[in-house]
Design a protein around this nucleic acid. Structure first.
Lengths: 359, 359
DNA sequence: ATGAAAGCGCTAACAG
DNA sequence: CTGTTAGCGCTTTCAT
């Protein structure tokens, strides 16, 4: 009974084992198995057979140490429980697997410190690249550092132009403006917007100038201005400043003397809060309030009236980020790619027309 | 100008670099950095300083090759976009990070072949352990093999008793029976159940005897039998056999001559389909139909009436799985642990009382 | 407490 | 086409 280095049932077979079994050198075995260099058909066959017999599985750790590639991607997002990120992550994992990569997942809850920690840990694990939905567009030193050190980064959902990295986003400003224009076209003038802007994790919660939330707010403002509405902020509510619940924000808005006739929510979580407030107040959608939200979640199609939405191509966002990243990982050295995917306004039954005054 | 092996800005510092900078041997540097063996305080300090100066970060790949530990866990689930799994995954990643582990994520869409492939890939990456929500409770050879080879597996959501692995589940049978009992207590006799049983990916879709879906169905049946309802399957609909849409199943059920007065959905995705059918038919909840579902998703609290649910402790499910797994990884060799977490019935407004006939 | 040397499993130059 | 020789960066006996 020989004493094995490892106790336990069976020490996994290694290249030397296979080589011995096949009667060739380790190099030949390695070449045959990994499929590089040149090996005679006979040798290749004998190695394959030997490997099969021994149940050989390559040690990816050892291989990674040499090649410098782990075939692992890091995904750093805010919160997997948010349907937007769940969809994005699904797109990422599917596209990654299709390209022969696995993905390490990290949630940040929009906390920049958590993001930095996550990036550090993932780099220590030698991910081949990083997909990051940045919590803040300022203080991106950790991303720049990763990129500079040869760990490509693709920005998702939010771009940070100064960094000069590939990015995959939607046109938040344009999409919001378009949605509000539709509300205006239906005759609405008192249109509210409820946003969380950066999700208000930190206390003073300065508004991140590059956040999607702000872009959506600006799109909203610009549509209002186009329509000759000068005071664009009367019906604007941002939760980050006061860490308020979207439902409270909505209640506040709807209880005012001159309440809005339409409301635009900057994401589906907010819309849910709004919806709940609306129904608590005994108001009806769309008769008393028209409602539009970013993100086409499952429930938006199931409630009655069905909710009109600005749909983002969530899975595609993730998939494109992976493709851009993988092409960088594999040496792609072309121009910085800024992919902007189209959003789609899906008109359903949550928007009613307001008769023009004196009509 | 010396020629570096690696091109690029700066070759990352290694142990030899730090050792040289600190004027000690590699062994001492290694000990000081990784914190084992014994090192004099002075040496430790100098090494730390040198490492700092050089921006040294340990190569986890190399370390893993020696120690045999990657501090990475694999999570194999059905679909991250399903709110149940999103919550579970959130619990997994949070608990893992807290314990010093990262997680590799794989979706299977309930496809056993995809699950096998995922387990294989993750094992090749040398995860320290696996959390698996098994697609099928038969054909679990790949799980048994992993376990036998020293890669601990914790089963999540569904147990497979024969395997003798740790598991974290809820009492699906009991929870379903309890929910149906409440419906019965409210006076309902014609209670429907809509289930997908294994999600119907495969065509003939044999019902997996160990699936959560079947347990919930059995709980339903047993509550009905208790109440003296002999024919338990009149209002039972399983989608897997016909790959039907839950909304279609519900429409079919509700359009019958003697429609059910209450309906129990075995998960939130089904409930959404049911809800949409109910509203399309112009029926009201709960006046025309009482509704209860598994899983307390965001929308169940936001719609009106709010939906009564069987809430599962989703994050806790994930967190407990991680804790059980980590303790195995770290050598815990105790009894097999079968953790059953409690569900909670949350009564809201979607269940109405039916006056007893002739009352 | 420290250093020298061996080696994890694999790939990559370099001969032949 | 194949084998020999190094060596990735780290930990770990084993001496000293």
């Amino acid at each position: 009974m020989t004493t094995n280095r490892r106790s336990g049932p069976h020490r996994p077979a290694t290249i030397p084992d296979v080589a011995r079994e096949a009667g060739v050198s380790r190099s030949t075995a390695s070449r045959a198995l990994a499929g590089y260099g040149s090996v005679s058909p006979q040798a290749r066959e004998r190695v394959r057979a030997a490997a099969d017999r021994l149940g050989y599985r390559a040690n990816q750790l050892a291989r990674s140490m040499i090649t410098g590639r782990t075939h692992t991607l890091g995904a750093v997002i805010a919160d997997i429980q948010n349907p937007f990120f769940a969809g994005v992550t699904r797109g990422i994992t599917d596209a990654a697997r299709a390209a022969g990569y696995q993905v390490l997942l990290a949630n940040t809850d929009e906390d920049p410190a958590a993001e930095q920690a996550a990036v550090k840990t993932l780099r220590d694990k030698h991910v081949d690249g990083l997909i990051v939905a940045p919590a803040a567009t300022t203080d991106a030193g950790h991303l720049a550092a990763a990129h500079a050190a040869g760990c490509p980064v693709v920005l998702l959902d939010r771009d940070i132009p100064d960094l000069g990295m590939d990015s995959v986003t939607v046109d938040n400003h344009g999409a919001a403006r378009d949605a509000v224009r539709r509300l205006l076209a239906a005759g609405h003038r008192r249109i509210a917007l409820v946003s969380l802007v950066g999700d208000g994790v930190r206390d003073p919660a300065p508004v991140d100038p590059g956040s999607t939330g702000l872009a959506r707010i600006e799109g909203y403002r610009s549509a209002l201005r186009e329509a000759g509405i000068a005071d664009t902020d009367t019906y604007l509510r941002m939760g980050a400043f006061h860490q308020q619940d979207p439902a409270d924000l909505a209640r506040d808005l709807l209880a005012a003397p001159e309440p809005p006739t339409a409301l635009f929510a900057t994401d589906s979580v907010i819309a849910l809060g709004v919806l709940s407030a609306v129904r608590d107040l005994g108001l009806r959608v769309p008769e008393d309030l028209s409602l539009v939200t970013f993100d086409d979640t499952d429930w938006a199609r199931a409630v009655r009236p069905r909710i009109s939405v600005v749909a983002q191509p969530v899975q595609e966002l993730g998939a494109r980020a992976v493709r851009a990243l993988v092409s960088r990982v594999q040496g792609g050295t072309g121009e910085r790619e800024h992919i902007t995917l189209p959003t789609r306004f899906i008109a359903r039954e949550s928007v009613a027309a307001v008769p023009p005054p004196g009509g």
